[in-house]
């Protein structure tokens, strides 16, 4: 009997430890969000979002950095989404077992694991220098597109695999070709899942700093970029500059910039989650 009691106490103890470790993970997240909101919230004025930094970044706002981030996100989207979706279509609809597919899958896994700074080096070597795009929105978008490619491929593949095989069979049995089947039956039913993955991928791109250090990010620009061959100010790099290079930057500008970035990134994650949940509830298969 007493053995049972001591065992129960022991298990209680273990379970408390497990709960504490969960708390250790959760608490900092709450603290981070709390700090950002309490310290950055004050700086969040309309003027902060709509005006450029002034007086050596000690005044003004983050408007050009927001614009630059939006440009980069758009560029990343344009370059990564078509390739990512087609690659996923290849893997789910066309690929047959063999060394080529295995190599493709291995490449995707490894691409996902390449450190972001190595993407930066590669972007510098290929896009900025070899292809002579210079440090530009084009070079930065291409670099980020490669970085998020695995995310988009994996999510799209999952979405395609979730489309029941019976839809494909029905279409093929009606005399549709493979591509007609993909175009008219498979893709429309996979789109919501793909959108979720795409938003997650692009939000990741929006928060990355290391890959854009040498490929696009500018310390300060007096005017907005006019073409894809221009450099741009970008939020994460702007935060880096504010924190490490501008000793007298007022905290509300630093925290406000960090909060702006977090809102963009987590906001997109939230949108992705909502889409996923709504789609799951709505679909009937």
């Amino acid at each position: 009997m007493s053995a049972g009691i001591s065992r129960r106490i022991y298990e209680r103890f273990i379970y408390s430890l497990l709960a504490i470790s969960a708390l250790v993970v959760v608490a900092p997240v709450i603290l981070i969000v709390y700090f950002l909101i309490s310290r950055g919230g004050a700086g969040m004025t309309w003027e902060f979002f709509t005006s450029p930094p002034r007086n050596h970044m000690t005044e003004g706002g983050v408007f050009p950095a927001i614009v630059g981030t939006l440009y980069l996100m758009t560029g990343t989207l344009v370059f990564s989404v078509p390739v990512g979706i087609l690659a996923a279509i290849y893997l789910t609809e066309y690929a047959k077992q063999g060394p080529f597919v295995r190599a493709v899958r291995l490449a995707i896994v490894n691409l996902a694991g390449v450190p972001s700074i190595v993407f930066g080096l590669f972007g510098l070597g290929l896009f900025v220098l070899a292809l002579k795009f210079g440090a530009s929105i084009l070079a930065g978008s291409l670099t980020l597109a490669l970085l998020v490619l695995p995310v988009i491929i994996t999510a799209s593949e999952e979405a395609l695999l979730a489309v029941p095989e019976s839809f494909r069979q029905a279409s093929l049995a009606l005399g549709a070709t493979k591509w007609q089947t993909i175009q008219r039956v498979v893709l429309p039913n996979a789109v919501p899942g793909m959108i979720t993955g795409i938003i997650l991928g692009v939000s990741r791109a929006a928060g990355e700093t290391a890959p854009i250090l040498f490929t696009v990010a500018a310390y300060y620009l007096p005017s907005l970029p006019r073409s894809i061959f221009d450099q741009a100010m970008v939020l994460p790099y702007h935060l880096y500059v504010l924190v490490t290079q501008v000793p007298d930057a007022p905290p509300h500008i630093q925290w406000g910039t960090a909060l702006t970035l977090l809102i963009i990134v987590l906001g997109m994650n939230l949108v992705a989650t909502v889409i996923r949940l709504r789609f799951r509830r709505a679909r009937k298969w």
Binding site: P164, S166, F167, Q169, A170, S171, A173, L174, G175, V185, N189, R283, K284, W285
Partner: peptide, 14 residues
């Protein structure tokens, strides 16, 4: 086109 097929489980498209 000439040889149509009806499957075991109804499989209409959504």
């Amino acid at each position: 086109k000439r040889v149509g097929m009806v499957f075991q489980r109804p499989n209409p498209f959504p």
